[in-house]
């Protein structure tokens, strides 16, 4: 499953430009003005572009995490591991380490792909230019990490895979939108789902500039702090929850 995820990630990275240009080419045949074809892969924009597209795949990573943990409950292997002499905290910690490694691996794939694509699609570059917007790599790491920890939290809470998937979807698509609709935007943007989503904004493109819309080209520290806060909160709650619970 992890292998499939890595393959998907690579496909998105290497296919993104063709896809976007294909859509644009289709659109331009019917549009009055011809739209410029453009590259997603030139330094330094490659980092934000790839990170943004990869963001759509974080749900797969979250599902891997979710199954990884609910399996411990359906096979009751968490029970056995604790009986064998793991402490409850060690068990939770071992899952957390897995989640961190998985997120690191995703970020590593992003880095390597970005490097390869950037080097081959940028005509003139310097190291400084190449790494100018490399902050999007750690931002991407934080994005998938926070989302995966949220999935881990739900999995530890609900224990059954189907219920956990349902709860994750229910929260992301129904509960959070309702809450965020009924409170001011300045607060709503710090809800977990929004904070995770805001971390990496939609990349600006020539096309969007043509229409006069502009998105953020950097990472807001506040979003990053909010994500880090949720990572700690969810992890802390899992530890707390399992102090007195039957397994």
């Amino acid at each position: 499953m992890t292998g499939i995820y890595a393959a998907l990630l690579l496909m998105v990275f290497f296919g993104a430009e063709k896809l976007v240009n294909g859509v644009l080419a289709n659109a331009s045949t019917s549009a009055p003005v011809t739209m410029p074809g453009f590259t997603l892969y030139s330094f330094p924009y490659v980092w934000q572009n790839l990170a943004f597209f990869a963001g759509f795949l974080k749900i797969f990573l979250a599902l891997i995490v979710l199954f990884f943990i609910t399996n411990e409950f359906s096979n009751k292997t968490m029970r056995q591991n604790i009986m064998n002499g793991m402490s409850r905290n060690q068990f939770i910690l071992s899952k957390l380490i897995f989640v961190i490694l998985l997120s690191l691996a995703s970020a590593a794939i992003l880095f390597v792909s970005g490097l390869i694509l950037g080097l081959s699609y940028t005509e003139e570059y310097t190291t400084a230019l190449a790494l100018q917007k490399a902050i999007f790599i750690p931002a991407y790491f934080l994005e998938v990490l926070t989302f995966s920890i949220m999935a881990m939290f739900i999995a530890f809470l609900v224990k059954r895979s189907i219920l956990a998937i349902g709860a994750l979807a229910l929260y992301s698509y129904i509960i959070e939108p309702i809450i965020s609709g009924s409170i001011p935007d300045s607060v709503a943007k710090f809800l977990p789902g929004e904070a995770i989503g805001n971390l990496i904004d939609i990349p600006n493109s020539a096309l969007m500039k043509m229409f006069g819309v502009s998105f953020r080209e950097n990472v807001s520290p506040l979003d990053a702090i909010a994500c880090l806060f949720y990572c700690c909160l969810f992890t802390g709650l899992i530890f707390l929850f399992y102090r007195r619970k039957d397994i």
């Binding site: 096979n75 009751k76 292997t77 029970r79 604790i82 009986m83 064998n84 002499g85 402490s87």
Partner: peptide, 15 residues
């Protein structure tokens, strides 16, 4: 948890 490493246990069903 250390004390449990000195104990071998089979509870209810093989896990």
């Amino acid at each position: 948890s250390y004390v449990r490493r000195r104990i071998g246990a089979l509870l209810e069903q093989p896990l």
